[in-house]
Design a protein around this nucleic acid. Sequence first.
DNA 1: ATGCATGAGGA
DNA 2: CCTCATGCATA
Length: 359
Amino acid sequence: MMSMNSKQAFSMHPILHEPKYTPLHSSSEAIRRACLPTPSLQGNIFAGFDETLLQRAEALAAVDIVTQKSHPFKPDATYHTMTTMTSMTGTPTSSPAHLHHPSVLTSHHHAHHPHHHHQPAQGLEGDLLEHLSPAISLGGMPTAADVASGASHAHSHMAAAINHAQHHHHPHAQAVNVHHPHHALAAHASLASASVASGDAEPDPRELEAFAERFKQRRIKLGVTQADVGSALANLKIPGVGCLSQSTICRFESLTLSHNNMVALKPILEAWLEEAERAQREKMAKPEIFSGGDKKRKRTSIAAPEKRSLEAYFAVQPRPSSEKIAAIAEKLDLKKNVVRVWFCNQRQKQKRMKFSATH
DNA sequence: ATGCATGAGGA
DNA sequence: CCTCATGCATA
């Protein structure tokens, strides 16, 4: 895979970029609960033949494994790459505070249809693979993995302001609520089309898609990397808004965020874009150099065979109980928490996929 | 571009 | 514990 990501190594953006951390803090998720799939029911059903399910799923996975190539067996490759403090050239990137998790907002919930990937029959494997394939999406531009710019990770989040849970009304009416008493995150610059009536709610997925596309184009035009955008956001001084990671910017551009998240981020990125283009006009280039160095986190690597098994289990029961998770973890020789997190992440992915498929 | 992880907030 | 928004580490 790998495309050619070459540009964006050191694109300095005219905008300021002091790595601050400023997470949007809020997380008002509320309605999602509405679509819970009868929890009590699943327990019973499962209890009845969990053994069978596990065996079936596993058997399928096993067959799969054989079919494919052998696996190197690496149950738990959690590397701890310590930070070798790469370089610490007085980078501004280090911000002392640390708080985590900002959350812009939550609560969106589309109609979740109870689609199931049918029964664990022989056709299971194919199905699994099918619905779990990673959407590659856009290929216009090369991977923008700014390798060189490792700047910006102060990874500290501050709890700027806790927002309150949102009201949960209809499926998609809530707008970008943000969490703060005052700050203005609303959609100020209306684009020219779309819902301009109310002022801040735009349940229009097409508009978002169009914006994401334009954003990426203009960002590239400015010669700014996704990571740069993320750290530069802190310089906008928007109350409640801090920097974001390259990951998030990338996901925004590729629409791989939840609809609500997209809606919440749009105004922010839009504001940055305007500011960036304005600054560029003024020719405010600053030869800044950053370097960052800090501790690293570990990232477990689940081998393909194990992953296939997990997918098989997931097809049968997306929300296994703690006991089931423990059983699966043991069979696959993975830590229970790793399995639990895997299921959580899988659920998120699935939701995202369903949504985009529906829209 | 994505996989696995953390954490806030909500039951 | 889950859901969600995010992020570090990586391919």
